[in-house]
């Protein structure tokens, strides 16, 4: 029996793991990807203490520090968390079960999909959600990035190292990424921005051949835009299926509702941290890590019988 099981092993989960063991809790962190979505970050230049570090390296350091102090970190896909007689049972896809007295939900978020025809069919055939991963496969090709946020612009920057042409397709009139990033991407001749357009479908038989676009505002015909790759960067949705089944309350946008002072949810003994919560729209390594620390502290107070 563990004192604390943390579901999710990204910045929030690993930080909670570190704080859990620092409070002498028997702590298990289970996650599908150790390091979580932070692994995809090309360069992190806003995590204090590191001038510039890759997401995977930063997450490796998080993991090493938590393990150094005694957290057990396990790779696995959690399919269910059940509450029985005050304790929790966590079950994985491989049918392993673990028990604990408290839970921290830190499953983060998953990529928001466009939900347009062709997107699913051509996933892995030119449609991608990870420029860091798949960029090198598009050497000399023409690619599109859908979105106008930091993530979209960062993807365009990565892709410009490999592709022949990079087209950012954005529905608004101006990119909304950090000014520094925007300036950088707009200075690269092979990167072009197509404003006021949204994708309607992805076309291709065996692989992506074109995107079909239409104006976001105003009237206008659909037009075909030939590309070899489509990178979708339109934000994230919280991964809350386990939380829902456990009876955890979500807000109207689907994020886990927590008390921001304690990170506790409506279910006694269940806390949440990181991108999955409704605390802030500002999804950063540092905000996830701080929520993880706070959730672990609250779980500790709960377990020792103090105030939650």
């Amino acid at each position: 029996m563990y004192d604390l099981i943390i579901v999710g092993a990204g910045a929030a989960g690993l930080s909670a793991g570190l704080y859990g063991v620092r409070y002498k809790l028997r702590t298990l962190v289970i996650g599908e990807v150790i390091g979580g979505k932070g692994m995809e970050a090309h360069l992190v230049e806003n995590y204090p203490g590191f001038l510039s570090i890759s997401g995977s390296e930063l997450m490796r350091k998080f993991r090493e520090q938590a393990e150094e102090f005694g957290a057990k970190i396990l790779r696995g896909k959690v399919v269910e968390v059940r509450k029985e007689k005050g304790n929790f049972t966590v079950r994985t896809l491989d049918d392993e079960s673990f028990e604990s007295k408290a839970i921290i939900l830190a499953m983060g978020s998953e990529r928001r999909r466009l939900n347009i025809p062709g997107e699913d069919k051509l996933l892995g055939k030119g449609v991608s959600y990870c420029a860091t991963c798949d960029g090198p496969l598009f050497k000399g090709k023409k690619v599109a990035v859908i979105g106008g946020s930091d993530a979209a612009v960062k993807s365009a920057l990565i892709l410009s190292e490999h592709a022949k042409e990079v087209h950012i397709i954005y529905r608004r009139e101006k990119l909304r990424a950090e000014p520094l990033l925007t300036e950088k991407v707009l200075s690269i001749p092979k990167v072009k921005v197509v404003y006021n357009r949204v994708p309607v479908r992805v076309e291709g038989k065996e692989k992506v051949e074109a995107l079909v676009l239409k104006p976001f505002k105003g009237e206008g015909k659909e037009e075909e835009f030939p590309v070899d790759g489509v990178f979708i960067e339109i934000g994230d949705v919280p991964s809350t299926s386990i939380a829902k089944e456990l009876g955890v309350k979500l807000d109207e946008e689907g994020y886990v509702e927590v008390n921001p002072k304690t990170m506790e949810t409506n279910v006694k003994g269940v806390y949440a941290a990181g991108d999955i919560t409704n605390v802030t729209k500002f999804k950063q390594f540092i905000t996830a890590a701080s929520q993880g620390a706070l959730a672990a502290y609250s779980a500790y107070l709960f377990l020792k019988g103090g105030k939650k």
Partner: peptide, 24 residues
């Protein structure tokens, strides 16, 4: 026709695109 990594070939046949859910 692999346009996403990781991908796994077993004896030259494409078996997985992406990381398999588990060792099993």
């Amino acid at each position: 026709g692999i346009m996403g990594v990781p991908a796994i070939l077993i004896n030259g046949k494409l078996a997985f695109e992406g990381v398999p859910p588990s060792d099993l």
